[in-house]
Design a protein around this nucleic acid. Structure first.
Lengths: 249, 249
DNA sequence: CGAGTGTTTGATAATGTTCAAGAAGCGTGG
DNA sequence: CCACGCTTCTTGAACATTATCAAACACTCG
């Protein structure tokens, strides 16, 4: 049996113990602003049992696709990106656990870029989110609008980084964003978090060459602004960093 | 009487002839996808008589403000921007005639950046748009969603420019965007259009220094890719330009 | 005319890219 | 457990692009 097929068949669903943990996490994210309505809760619980796992590198949403199947990312990282004719790639934003993909505030919304899984990604379809966005009173709607709002805000920060900040500032700003977002969903321990990104991916997000990304990271380490071992990274003085990169959430 | 006050008092409303022209233009934009419903039409016509003129440099929407008073820009140019602590400015997007400001697909949406008039700007409040966004069948809603959709698409293009394109590509891409957008609302004559922007503003949009913007423009002229006299600009071979900048709408 | 704003030019410096090659890390199969 | 191949990371040197600074010029408006 060819290796490809073997790999394709491994882990399209999480094992039992993990599924429970992920379901817990999902409910934690969705009830951040308060308890769900009874009907909502029922529907969400049913949806959560539909969770599945995507392999790293797999395309989750194609550019131009209808945004009508919202999914909540329960674990793993993804990116929204576009590739130019000559192969240059730009990453627009990152998708982190607790974020949604495939959701649009517009009813006939289509994807303006491709969404790709960077790591193994556990996703739960949440079709109810699509309607909830437009329901003023729905708690799920509140969460959905909050997530969309965040997403917009991150995109604006991304423009700011790329347009007017130096390599150092860009890197700090992005790391601060990761920190804040992961902190919010409980993925930060003792000021450290896992950063499952190659330097090439960071480069494509920050609009830098890989080499320069590497040097920027090294200098930040030399200056003790960040520290890392393996893929675990920790940020130094957060206020100082925020000041340096003119960062706000 | 101090000069400031004199200027503040000039032209807060368009004169009669201009008002008629602007009203015509507004209806043209709003019926692009088809005739409005009777009620909608009535409401819109009433709103249009509320049009007023903002002075260049005036802040139309402050960062953080509630997006609950949609306005249609009937004439003039605006930008969405943010200014860093040290004075660096980034322009996120341009507001052109036929665009809306103050509209959000989310009900409690707030502005993530400031909107400023670059030139004299004729604006008509269109409160009905805010509700229409959520109404599936409303023709006005269709227009509103279309405009929001455009806006998102332009922002993604902006990230692409800033992140992965050279100064030349950025400039071409932005000029092509202007061309396409202005063409759509009938502001292009014989392939030429008015570009009421200083090079400093272009720079703050493209993430370049003013000097470099100047040199980039000059080189494009030398290569006969663009031509300009006064603030009127015309683009050369559009296919070629689109190819060069990997441009898509 | 004189002030203010915007454009143009040249010289120089900083920032970031490219190319090339070696080192380190990691999963796979023997 | 090691050897292999692959990807990722690291480093140096040459190069390109873009920024910065300073000054001159052009244009408009009161």
């Amino acid at each position: 049996m060819p290796a490809e097929i073997t790999r394709a068949m491994t882990r399209t669903r999480p094992d039992r113990a993990e599924a429970i943990r992920l379901r817990e996490f999902a409910l934690h994210c969705l009830t951040r602003h308060g308890a769900l309505g009874a009907l909502e809760g029922e529907n969400v619980r049913a949806s959560l049992s539909e969770m599945h796992i995507s392999r790293p590198g797999s395309e989750l949403i194609a550019e131009g696709a209808r945004l009508d199947k919202p999914c909540l990312l329960l674990d793993g990282w993804g990116v929204r990106q576009r590739v130019l004719n000559d192969g240059r790639r730009q990453i627009f934003s990152f998708v982190l656990p607790g974020d949604v993909i495939g959701l649009s505030a517009r009813r006939e919304g289509t994807a303006v870029c491709t969404t790709v899984a960077l790591t193994e990604a556990a996703l739960a379809p949440l079709p109810l989110l699509a309607e909830a966005v437009h329901e003023e009173q729905s708690m799920l709607g509140h969460v959905a609008r909050d997530l969309l709002s965040q997403e917009e805000s991150f995109l604006y920060n991304q423009v700011l980084r790329l347009g007017r900040q130096s390599a150092h500032e860009r890197m700090i700003s992005l790391l601060l964003e990761f920190h804040a977002r992961l902190q919010r969903v409980g993925f930060v321990r003792d000021g450290s978090f896992a950063l499952p990104l190659t330097q090439e991916i960071l480069s494509d997000a920050l609009g830098l060459s890989v080499v320069h990304t590497n040097r920027t990271l090294q200098q930040l380490k030399r200056e003790h602004l960040i520290a890392s071992k393996g893929s675990i990274i920790s940020l130094g003085n957060l206020e100082q960093l925020a000041e340096m990169a003119d960062w706000r959430l």
